[in-house]
């Protein structure tokens, strides 16, 4: 837990927070969501970033995802629910990081079957935590009825898990080595 706050003491980590936030927020506009049921169920490609960056950059990406989500709301949908969005996205990214680190420790990242399974598990657990916080917020603020909140809870889990696991594993496989060489990943920072 100490690492959550220690990232704020390094310039490089602060830059990673800002870059994560900016990439996450900026993909909300040009990268349009895939509409499954228009207005209700959509798949947002941006959902991959909290998971992917969380695994790659650790707690800095968790802060970045939280801030990025609030910036995304600043495109016109800022409300009291943004507070729940902040915490939801923070734990979305941080849970993915914790799950990945619990199973994939010092081994090389090659995205074999085991690592893909861990990545998928990390996406699922992170999505459940995120969905719970956001759904609880919507219910507490009386924005939606309980039945609808439960539906939203399920939709968020499906959306984030699908985007995180499918898009995330592909991007991880393609980008990991390159990102590792930059020395910006969490493992590099802590070696």
């Amino acid at each position: 837990m100490k690492d959550i706050f220690s990232v704020w003491s390094k310039t490089r980590q602060i830059v990673i927070i800002a870059i994560t936030a900016a990439i996450y927020a900026s993909t909300l506009i040009p990268f349009k969501a895939i509409q499954i049921i228009p207005g209700f169920v959509e798949l947002r490609p941006a959902s991959v970033f909290p998971i992917l960056f969380g695994i790659l950059f650790g707690p800095a990406a968790a802060w970045g995802s939280a801030i990025g989500n609030v910036i995304g709301d600043a495109f016109g949908t800022l409300s009291l629910a943004s507070i729940f969005g902040f915490f939801g996205n923070f734990f979305f990214s941080y849970t993915a990081f914790l799950t990945w680190n619990a199973f994939v420790k010092k081994e090389d990242v090659v995205m074999n079957f085991r690592q893909v399974s861990v990545f998928t598990l990390a996406s699922l657990l992170a999505s459940i935590i995120c969905a719970f916080i956001i759904a609880a917020g919507l219910y507490m603020l009386k924005i939606l009825q309980l039945n609808v909140v439960i539906t939203v809870f399920i939709v968020i889990i499906v959306n984030n898990t699908l985007m995180g696991s499918v898009l995330g594993t592909i991007l991880m496989k393609l980008l990991y080595k390159r990102l590792k060489n930059t020395g910006l990943t969490y493992k590099n920072e802590n070696d």
Partner: peptide, 9 residues
């Protein structure tokens, strides 16, 4: 950081 993120967006 928040201000920098907004500018980078």
């Amino acid at each position: 950081t928040v201000s920098l993120s907004f500018r980078l967006v």
